[in-house]
Amino acid sequence: MKILLTGCSGQVGYELERSLQGLGQVVAVDRSRMDLSNLDQVRDVIRAEKPQLIVNPAAYTAVDKAESEPELAYRINAEAPGLMAAEAKALGAALVHYSTDYVFPGDDPAPRVEGDATGPINVYGASKLAGEQAIAASGVPHLIFRTSWVYGMRGKNFLLTMLRLAKERDELRIVADQHGAPTWSRTIADTTALVLAQAGQGGADWWREHGGIYHLSSQGQTTWFDFTRAILEQAGIDCKLVPITTADYPVPARRPQYSVLSSQRLMDRFCTLPQWQEALRLCMK
């Protein structure tokens, strides 16, 4: 199987390039070869490579900046995935795509399941939801994995930012009233590979039976404040943490107050997912 992997220099794409080895021939491309804001380039690469599977972790993820760049966010997060889906269908290929907890409004303190009503409250979430809808509308065999609070040891993410700031400052003020599940980029990649290993054995019937949307995030829940405390404890860094509210830290894009995802559907069908504390320990180790 020939697998076209986008965004291979990103934190999830980097891990996927490793995790997907053994499932087929992985053709990994980054923005220099396949810039998702250039739809003609996206189409040309797919037609040149003729993959049997496209795995697309590439995305516009600058949540606050998206408020002032909605056209670019929609082109990368909605139009490009829709184009990938159409091209994959024309090739008889399948598509794996990644979405976000931000497709939900976060106003209900209960873990979200796949069929719950969406209602994004910022441009980023709306653009990711539009990408989901474009893929579903294409009719291509697909998997969409919604994940949350992604971190890792490369790229730009909350964990690396906190490690840097804690070494530079004596005190950090961290939001303590937003709830979610931090998810290691390697957990996402390894779970994807486990699911695709099953798909490869099942053929077209497998995609008809198992395709669609799944939530893929670590188990349990926490706040940004408690996540930071766990990070610094693991790193052995002594820095004073001060809990603050969302209102105390104004940013351009609104954030969901509660964006915990229930991954039970994925775990019932495929594999277990780790508690967020255990995944953090392994990541930092």
Rank of each mutant, 00 (worst) to 15 (best):
residue 65 K to C: 00
residue 193 A to G: 13
residue 59 A to P: 01
residue 203 G to T: 01
residue 153 M to G: 08
residue 86 A to D: 15
residue 269 R to M: 15
residue 69 E to T: 00
residue 219 Q to A: 07
residue 167 K to T: 15
residue 200 G to C: 04
residue 11 Q to A: 08
residue 91 L to N: 05
residue 33 R to L: 09
residue 162 M to G: 09
residue 235 A to S: 07
residue 103 V to E: 06
residue 53 L to C: 08
residue 263 S to C: 05
residue 234 Q to L: 12
residue 44 D to G: 05
residue 129 L to K: 07
residue 279 A to P: 13
residue 56 N to I: 04
residue 62 A to V: 02
residue 216 L to A: 08
residue 225 F to K: 12
residue 46 I to E: 02
residue 73 A to V: 01
residue 279 A to Y: 11
residue 163 L to S: 14
residue 83 L to I: 14
residue 97 H to M: 08
residue 285 K to L: 14
residue 170 D to P: 07
residue 32 S to Q: 11
residue 251 V to F: 15
residue 235 A to T: 07
residue 173 R to V: 13
residue 93 A to D: 05
residue 224 W to M: 08
residue 109 P to S: 09
residue 187 T to E: 14
residue 216 L to I: 04
residue 83 L to E: 11
residue 149 W to R: 06
residue 125 G to K: 06
residue 57 P to L: 02
residue 122 N to D: 14
residue 280 L to Y: 09
residue 257 Q to E: 09
residue 237 I to Y: 15
residue 82 G to P: 13
residue 83 L to M: 12
residue 73 A to Q: 01
residue 232 L to D: 07
residue 33 R to K: 11
residue 82 G to N: 13
residue 5 L to N: 01
residue 180 G to I: 03
residue 65 K to E: 02
residue 76 I to F: 02
residue 193 A to N: 09
residue 123 V to K: 03
residue 6 T to R: 00
residue 228 T to V: 06
residue 159 L to Y: 15
residue 204 A to L: 09
residue 95 L to C: 10
residue 197 A to P: 04
residue 91 L to I: 13
residue 142 H to M: 07
residue 162 M to V: 15
residue 267 M to A: 10
residue 36 L to P: 05
residue 100 T to D: 02
residue 103 V to S: 05
residue 164 R to T: 14
residue 214 Y to N: 02
